[in-house]
């Protein structure tokens, strides 16, 4: 309880500094998802890439953009 309160306080105090980092990560994730949905085919199943993009922070979207898109 104490810990979460501290964490919330900490985030409130430093929001202006951390916000750009979070926004960039979210934008990267959304771009990767949009690209995944619009792609006709990917290397490997689509649901696998969706999980990778959603749950592996930063590295997931990069991995999808570099290795996931199939060159038809």
């Amino acid at each position: 309880m104490l810990l979460t309160q501290n964490a919330i306080e900490f985030i409130n105090d430093n929001l202006a500094i951390i916000a750009p980092l979070l926004i960039i990560q979210v934008v990267l994730m959304i771009t990767a998802l949009v690209s995944l949905i619009r792609a006709e085919a990917t290397k490997g199943p689509k649901w696998m890439w969706a999980l990778i993009i959603l749950f592996i922070n930063t590295i997931g979207p990069i991995a999808y953009f570099i290795f996931g898109r199939s060159q038809e």
Binding site: I24, Q25, L28, T31, S35, P61, I62, F65, R69
Partner: peptide, 14 residues
Amino acid sequence: RNYRWVWVPLVFIL
């Protein structure tokens, strides 16, 4: 088309 103009700058900022 590969969304590179979006993701490469973002990744470098990160």
